[in-house]
Structures are given as C-alpha cells and as structure tokens.
Nucleic acid binder design. Structure first.
Lengths: 247, 247
DNA sequence: CAAACTTAGCGTACAATTTACGTTAAGTTA
DNA sequence: TAACTTAACGTAAATTGTACGCTAAGTTTG
C-alpha cells in the first residue's frame, strides 16, 4: 500500500470476492472504502477488496497481495472467474472521484479481473487485528456496493455454486476437522436447498479422501458427531475421471 | 480496422479462440499476422484473431467486432473464459516490435481477455471471401503461435470440454440439420474418447429438444441416418435443473 | 432421575440410470 | 447377389439415486 501513484497501471485492477462460512451462513468479506493516502473524504460505502495493479505485477500476484494485506494469509484458494470491463462501470460520479483521489492518477476506464477466494473465517485475522475496516456480510443480505461490485459478487457466487458441484473445494471453507453435518449445511446454504441427510452422508462417505478421526463433538445437546478431515493426496490418487455429460 | 492509433487503449485487448467442426476434426481459426496499416514486415507467424480495444468499447463488443470483421457473422456464440495478463506475455522481442508497429503506439503490458466462440465452418466466409489470411487448423496440430496464444487455445479448449458436458452448445458447431452420429463424433473428438453409439443415442434421444425431421441422408454407402434439428425453445421449456453434485 | 428432545448414523425397498452388449434394417459397393 | 457399413432398436445386469424408517447417544427439562 501507499506506493507512489506512478507504480500503478490506471487501467487495470483486481477485485476479490472472498467467501467464508460461519457454520450457518455463507459470507463475503467487504471493506469500507477510504482513500489510499488521505484516509478518504468519501469513505462509507462498502466495496470488494481490490486494488490497481502494479506496473510489473502479475494479475494473480496482485490478487494475492490484496488478500495477504487484508487477511494476513498467504496460501489461500484463489480462482479467476471473470473480467468486468464495461467502459461505464466507473463513471458513477462519486465512485469516479474516489478512484482518482485514492490513486492520485487521472483514470478513465478500469478493467477489473475478478477472483473468488475461499477461506476459513476463524483462521483469518480480519476484523480483529487489522485496520482495514473489513467485515463479513451474509451473501444474501449485501448492502449496495460501489461500481458494479454487487454484480461481481453475484457472478462469483454463481461460479462457486457451479464449481463446488464437482470439485472438493468445500474443504477450503471448513475447519481442518469437521462433521458431515457441517459439509451438508455448507452445501445447503450454497445451493439454497435442503438435502436429505441420510442420502447426503451415503454419497459423501464413498469418497475415501474424507477420513474419520478418533474424535467426537463435545458439549452438543444431542448425539455427538464424529469428526472427519480432508486428505488432498487421497483425492488426487483416487480421482477417476469418468466422463459425465448430459443433454 | 485502420482506425487512428489514438482510438485504442494500449493496455487492453481481446483474443478469440474460434472453434469449428468439419465433420471429423475440431479446428481453430487462425490468422497470419500482418501489420495493421503497413501490411507488416514481420508477417508469417500465426495468431488468434484479436485486437486492441477501442477507448469507449465494451470488451464483448470488441470481441464481436473482431468476429464480424473476420467471418462476416453477427450472432455468434461467444463466451468469455479467461484473462491473460502476465507482464511478460508480450516481451518476446519480435512479438513486441510487431505490436508497436501495427498499433502505432508504444506498448508496455497488454492484458487480453479471451473469448471462445463456436461456429459452423460451412457458414463462415473465411478463407474464401476475405483477405485476412484466415485458416482452419486442427486443434491438436497447431503451429507455434505468437505471445501466449497456444496457452490461450489450450485453456479455451479445456473450457469447451467442460462446458459442453452440461449445456447444449454442441449445436453451435453443427449444421441446422444433423444426424445423431455427427453429434457423437463431435463429442468424441472433443473428449478424445470413443463412445458407445447405442448408449449415446439412448441418452441423447431422451432430450425432447432434439427433434426428428422427415429427411434422411442420401448417397451414403450404408443405411441412411435420419436428420434431426435443435429446438432451442423446447430446451428452455423442458430444462429441469436437478442438482447434481459429486465428491 | 426419568422423560423429552435433538441430531447422528445405519439400513432397506424401489426407481432410475448406466453399462455392456446382441440383433436387425437399409442402404451402397464389388 | 453377396459383402460391407452404419443406423436403429432392444435387453439384462449392475450401479446409483430417492424416499423413507429406525435406533443411538448425548443434553435439557420437569
């Protein structure tokens, strides 16, 4: 942060839709806008974490930089999903003024590359140990965001919904040890649909990379569930790519 | 084409991976590079169709413009699939020189938004009626392309392979009337795998949007196949989104 | 301390789909 | 006319999905 303006490419940015799961809701990490150097006179509106790109910086590198600055985490699940480059996307007057003020450069059209990211809410240091004014918002109760950021979240969510169906990325959102029910709840909130727990469990436990631990839940007001963990190596080994297709 | 340099944003471009199916092979439309105004001194290497973006132009609009100029077609299947923005992607000396020569502007890093497109080879006017030096190349026998264009094709192909599994986009590559065998062959070349024709047919004909015509093949040295056509409306109507997922 | 409550976790019957084939049909070519 | 080739229909077995019933193991309540 706080690099001289000349280091930035005024046409290119990255924005990150950072998803987290608090056990009940899917949430998105938003920050309160403020000026890069000044603290910002137009602070107040929420936006996605993002930044202009350094002149010699890789796009994914820029996204990683934004994530690291915000959460303190280095190895986060991160995937590019779209580009937003409509010439009018930054023409809202207030938004545009903020852009030029915070970057210190005159700016015309900004094309932003959007990434989505999955993190375990408990592991990130957001809201406690940094001063970015970051906060987690329920994905279905988002405030109005700057620019086209609501649209970006929407498309990021659609992408997540799609990709989680065939890739074991749910574990990126869950703690290292988890119960079957936690996975099911996660799927239910992402799909917006209740699933039968008996059939869900049956389907899930066929996967050999979800390994039972010797530990149970404690202090819950019902039969305690067994904890499981995800074994990435076993996933890669046992992965059989059968060719599904449908008309 | 031939617009003054100042109309272009020197940081942004689009590139199109245009797929076509000739009945036996999946092919990609490539053009021989030449200078924008001069005819080009460094012509010779193949590249994807693409261009810098006009200052006030939408990304998708730019892709459509490139496609229209090349093929003469307006309503083509077109889908954004990735951005390539590595700062080194245009640093190859020869490539970079061509870029600056053909655009007439000094250029540092170009971020390109990649689209893939599906067209019916017979319908496009390429190779015959234009002077773009465009030609169809088998997707598995591509020459070395400029910049990172081989990589772009690779990712575009991976995207097609993935998306064709659950969306009826194969019809974009086939003529208006087609046989079941043609669809199967298309799937086989895209997946790189032979499929059982009896089971393929069974699965396919469950879809009510593939409607039989009253016409058969003629002049083939075997039992002539019935022609079918694709009914987009019926697809939309009968589309039931069951929630598939897998671990 | 027993009954009520809640979620975990196993099982079962039936339906639907996939997989692996056999077989006949309808043309052209030799 | 026989051989050849792909179209098109069919069938049996295996696998997977769907819709449930039921018991287990804790905590909370009265």
């Amino acid at each position: 942060m706080n690099s001289p303006p000349a280091n930035f490419n005024p046409h290119l940015s990255v924005d990150c839709v950072i998803f987290g799961f608090d056990g009940d809701n899917l949430r998105v990490l938003l920050i309160k806008r403020k000026g890069r150097n000044t603290g910002g006179t137009k602070a107040g509106k929420y936006k996605l974490p993002g930044d202009l790109i350094h002149l010699k910086e890789d796009l994914e590198g820029a996204a990683k930089r934004v994530l690291a600055e915000l959460t303190g985490l280095e190895n986060i699940f991160l995937r590019q999903f779209s580009v937003f480059g409509n010439p009018n996307r930054t023409t809202n007057e207030e938004d545009h003024a903020w852009l030029e003020e915070s970057s210190g450069i005159p700016i015309s059209r900004v094309v932003t590359t959007a990434y989505y990211s999955l993190i375990r809410i408990d592991k990130s240091k957001t809201e406690n140990e940094n001063n970015h004014h970051a906060s987690w918002h329920k994905v279905d109760e988002l405030p109005n965001l700057v620019f086209d950021h609501n649209q970006i979240v929407e498309k990021g969510l659609a992408t997540l919904r799609n990709e989680i169906r065939f890739e074991p990325i749910c574990f990126e959102l869950l703690p290292g040890k988890f119960t079957i029910r936690q996975i099911q709840t996660l799927y239910e909130v992402i799909f917006g649909k209740e699933l039968d727990n008996r059939n869900f469990r049956k389907k899930l436990l066929k996967a050999k990379y979800i390994v039972p631990l010797n530990e149970k839940q404690k202090g819950v007001a019902h039969k305690p569930a067994l904890y499981y963990s995800y074994n990435r190596n076993k996933y890669v080994e046992t992965r059989e790519d059968v060719l599904y297709y449908n008309f």
